[in-house]
Every structure is written in C-alpha cells, then in structure tokens.
C-alpha cells in the first residue's frame, strides 16, 4: 500500500506539488500547486481507475481503498 501511495504522490508531481489530500470512499480529492506536473498515465500505472482534473483540483479514482491511501499519502507528505 505504501508503494502505491508513493507512486500516486509521484504521479501528482511529487510531495512538493500537493497542497491538500482528502478521501471519499472511491477517490482521492487533491489540490496541486502546478497541474502541469500531474501525469495521468503515471497515476493510471499506479493503479488509478481514472483521473479527473479541474484547474488545480485533481481527483484520482482509486476504488474503496481511498481512505487508507489518503492516510499513507499524508504520511509521505508529513
């Protein structure tokens, strides 16, 4: 799980690019500093079912493990 969290952080442009992360059952709702650093293909390789970007808000659909992933990501951002 920690590897997946690290891969998602990388796909979002790295820890420095992530301003906020929260989870809802099926997805991670994140806010990034620079949307251009986000790689949809990297996120999908990390296991995302889909990526929805709207400005600086990037939603990563990961399925029901979203809550656990969000915690792991928070640890990596800490």
């Amino acid at each position: 799980m920690a590897d997946k969290a690290a891969a998602i952080v990388a796909g979002l442009g790295g820890a420095g690019n992530i301003e906020d992360v929260e989870a809802c059952i099926t997805r991670l709702r994140t806010e990034v500093g620079d949307p251009a650093l986000v790689s949809e293909s990297e996120l999908k390789s990390a296991g995302a079912h889909g990526v929805l970007t709207s400005g600086s808000v990037v939603q990563v659909v990961v399925g029901p493990e979203a809550d656990t992933l969000a915690d792991d990501i928070q640890d990596l951002l800490g």
């Binding site: 099926t26 997805r27 079912h49 889909g50 929805l52 939603q59 659909v61 399925g63 029901p64």
Partner: peptide
C-alpha cells in the same frame, strides 16, 4: 459525476 457515470469503480 464521472466516477459513477463512467463506471470507474
């Protein structure tokens, strides 16, 4: 919401 309408989960 595309998460549901596109069957993503």
């Amino acid at each position: 919401d595309p998460t549901f309408s596109a069957g993503m989960v």
